[in-house]
């Protein structure tokens, strides 16, 4: 079976070669995707001799930047002229800091069960990404002192391999606790929050965002750290 370059590069985007770290290849024209792949392979070979992989990582990151950047003149939906801004009401060292991520973490026994599916796998979440993008996201609350063994993760929109190895890659609970230990902040708010950010923007804004804002005020959070993934 022959395969065009177009089909090949697109197969990394939820296709036969699905790899969410390389799904960006779909955004590139075929000849540009080919050049990206050539450069990445060249950097792999260079690393054989140098033992240095930082350049290779930087190269992949640069291609991600290029591929996700909106095309010039493209219609953009969420562009705002105004920038909301309030100053913190108290010094950081006296502040209670909240954490909210779009990493898709949840607690064992408290699975949000998207579409009513019990124990949905990561693979199924990726396969159903189109449905997630039309749905209202569910917020999970996560106890600040949760054992890593009780933390679960499912998200159809990003490569979860690193976060499965170390949740702090996308859900920096330990770093926030270390900041508290160092006296930089007064307290880490309990619970913390996570939701799968691949969701309907309209439904998020209309159906849940007002409740989430109310919830944060109810938790007496002074400042909120956000980690999109």
């Amino acid at each position: 079976m022959s395969e065009t370059l177009e089909e090949f590069k697109n197969s990394f985007y939820y296709g036969s070669r699905s790899d969410l770290s390389f799904k960006f290849l779909k955004n590139l024209p075929p000849e540009v995707a080919a050049e990206a792949i050539r450069q990445i392979l060249e950097a792999v070979v260079t690393s054989f001799d140098t033992g240095e992989v930082t350049e290779l990582h930087d190269l992949v990151i640069r291609w991600q930047v290029d591929a996700y950047r909106p095309a010039e003149g493209s219609q953009r939906k969420y562009v705002y002229d105004d920038a909301p801004f309030v100053l913190p009401g108290k010094p950081l060292k006296e502040s209670r800091v909240g954490l909210m991520t779009s990493s898709g973490h949840f607690v064992s026994g408290d699975d949000p069960e998207p579409f009513g599916v019990k124990d949905m796998t990561q693979r199924e979440a990726e396969d159903r990404i189109g449905e997630f993008l039309r749905e209202t996201p569910t917020m999970s609350t996560i106890g600040r002192d949760i054992d890593a063994a009780d933390l679960r993760l499912r998200h159809g929109g990003y490569d979860t391999r690193s976060a499965l190895e170390d949740f702090n890659v996308t859900f920096p609970r330990d770093a926030l606790l270390a900041a508290r230990g160092a006296g930089r902040i007064a307290e880490v708010a309990d619970p913390m929050y996570s939701f799968p950010g691949a969701a309907s923007q309209g439904r998020l804004r209309k159906n849940v965002l007002p409740r989430w804002v109310e919830m944060l005020h109810g938790a007496a959070i002074d400042v909120l750290l956000l980690v999109p993934v």
């Binding site: 960006f24 990151i61 991600q64 930047v65 591929a67 996700y68 969420y78 705002y80 909301p84 801004f85 309030v86 100053l87 913190p88 909240g98 909210m100 779009s102 993008l133 996201p137 998200h155 929109g157 990003y158 939701f195 799968p196 950010g197 691949a198 969701a199 923007q201 998020l204 804004r205 965002l209 007002p210 989430w212 804002v213 944060l216 005020h217 959070i221 002074d222 400042v223 909120l224 750290l225 956000l226 980690v227 999109p228 993934v229």
Partner: peptide, 29 residues
């Protein structure tokens, strides 16, 4: 789309009076 979702959260939470800060990777700057 995750980064846009969190963008909406940041704007709404800040507008409600709670200061926010987000950590974005360079691809979604």
């Amino acid at each position: 789309m995750c980064h846009v979702s969190v963008g909406h959260v940041a704007r709404a939470v800040e507008e409600s009076g709670i200061p926010t800060a987000g950590v974005y990777v360079s691809a979604f700057r």
